[in-house]
Amino acid sequence: LNLKQAKEEAIKELVDAGIAEKYIKLIANAKTVEGVWTLKDEILTFTV
């Protein structure tokens, strides 16, 4: 999975969960695949 694909998957998951745009922007700015997954997990843990 490359960075672009990771971001697309994570953003789709966050949108489906009804997460606010400000958190989705954090994913869009992530620099690594690991960073994308870590941010996604943290956002889902603390906002859902």
Results as ranks from 00 to 15, higher is better:
K31M: 13
A20K: 07
V33Y: 03
A10R: 00
T45E: 11
I24S: 03
D16F: 11
L1D: 10
V33G: 01
G18D: 04
D41A: 13
V15Y: 12
A10W: 02
K7H: 03
L26C: 06
A20Y: 05
N29H: 11
L3Y: 02
E8R: 10
E42H: 13
W37I: 11
E8H: 08
N29E: 12
K7N: 01
T45A: 15
I24D: 01
T32R: 02
V36N: 00
K25S: 12
V36G: 00
T45I: 09
K22R: 11
V15N: 08
E42C: 08
Q5F: 09
T47H: 15
E34G: 06
Q5E: 09
E13S: 10
K31L: 15
Q5P: 02
I43T: 02
L26E: 06
I43Y: 05
I19S: 04
K22W: 09
I24K: 03
A30C: 14
G35S: 14
E9S: 10
F46V: 09
E13C: 09
K7V: 08
I19C: 06
A10G: 02
A20P: 15
E13P: 01
D16C: 07
T45R: 15
L44W: 04
K12R: 12
K25R: 11
T38L: 13
L26D: 04
E8I: 11
V15I: 13
G18N: 07
T32A: 02
L44Q: 03
L26H: 05
N29T: 09
V36K: 00
T47M: 15
T32E: 03
K12P: 00
I24Q: 07
K4Y: 10
E42D: 08
W37M: 13
F46M: 15
V36T: 03
L26N: 03
V48L: 14
G35R: 14
N2Y: 11
L39H: 02
I27Y: 00
A10Q: 01
A30K: 03
A10L: 05
A10D: 00
W37F: 10
I19D: 01
L14S: 01
Q5C: 06
A28R: 13
Y23H: 04
E8N: 05
T47A: 15
K7R: 08
L14T: 01
K25I: 12
K25P: 05
D16N: 13
K4F: 08
A28S: 12
L44H: 03
K22Y: 13
T38S: 13
I24W: 14
L1I: 12
G18F: 04
G18T: 02
F46L: 15
V48G: 15
I27H: 00
K40M: 13
T38G: 08
A6Y: 03
D16W: 08
A6G: 01
A6R: 02
E9Q: 15
V15D: 04
I43R: 00
T47D: 09
L3E: 00
L14F: 04
K31I: 13
K12W: 06
K7P: 00
K7C: 03
V48A: 15
G18W: 03
E8A: 11
I11Q: 04
I27P: 00
W37V: 08
L39P: 00
V48E: 12
L44I: 09
I19M: 05
N2G: 12
N29C: 10
A17P: 01
D41R: 10
I27L: 07
V15Q: 13
I24L: 11
I27C: 02
I43V: 05
L14V: 02
A10P: 01
E34S: 07
A20E: 13
T38P: 01
A6F: 04
L39Y: 04
N2L: 14
Q5N: 10
I43P: 00
W37K: 14
E9A: 14
A10I: 04
L3S: 01
I43A: 06
T38V: 12
A17Y: 09
D41F: 10
V36D: 00
L3A: 02
I19K: 03
T47E: 10
A30R: 03
E34N: 07
A6V: 09
K12I: 06
D41T: 11
K25Y: 10
T38A: 15
K7G: 02
E42Y: 15
V36F: 01
I43W: 03
A28P: 02
F46C: 13
E42A: 15
A6K: 03
V33P: 06
I24R: 04
E9I: 15
L3M: 04
N2F: 11
E34V: 07
K4N: 09
L3G: 01
A10F: 02
W37L: 13
A6W: 04
K7Q: 08
V33N: 02
L39W: 03
N2M: 13
Q5K: 13
A6Q: 04
K25H: 11
N29F: 12
A6S: 05
E34Q: 08
V15R: 15
E21H: 09
V36S: 01
N29M: 11
V33Q: 04
I11N: 02
Y23D: 03
K4G: 07
Y23I: 04
L1A: 12
A30Q: 09
L1S: 12
G18Y: 04
A28L: 14
A10S: 02
K40V: 15
L1E: 11
K12T: 05
L39G: 01
I19A: 11
A6L: 05
A28E: 15
T47Q: 13
E8L: 11
K40W: 06
D41G: 07
K4M: 11
T47P: 09
K12N: 06
K12Y: 04
I43H: 01
K25T: 11
L3I: 06
D16S: 13
E13L: 12
K4H: 09
K22N: 07
D16K: 14
I27A: 01
K12V: 04
V36R: 00
A6M: 04
K22I: 09
A20S: 11
L14W: 00
A17W: 10
L14H: 00
T38C: 08
I11K: 05
L39F: 04
A10C: 06
F46A: 11
K7E: 01
V48C: 12
I43Q: 01
Q5A: 11
E8Q: 09
K22G: 06
K40E: 01
L44F: 07
N2W: 10
A20L: 07
G35N: 11
D16T: 10
L26S: 04
I43S: 01
N29P: 02
T38E: 08
T45F: 11
V48H: 12
F46H: 15
A28V: 10
A20V: 05
E42P: 00
L14E: 00
Q5D: 08
D16Q: 14
A6P: 01
L1M: 12
E21A: 09
I11W: 05
T47W: 15
L39V: 07
K40N: 02
I24H: 08
L1T: 12
V15F: 08
I24E: 02
D41W: 13
A10V: 05
Y23R: 01
K12M: 07
A6D: 01
E34K: 09
F46K: 10
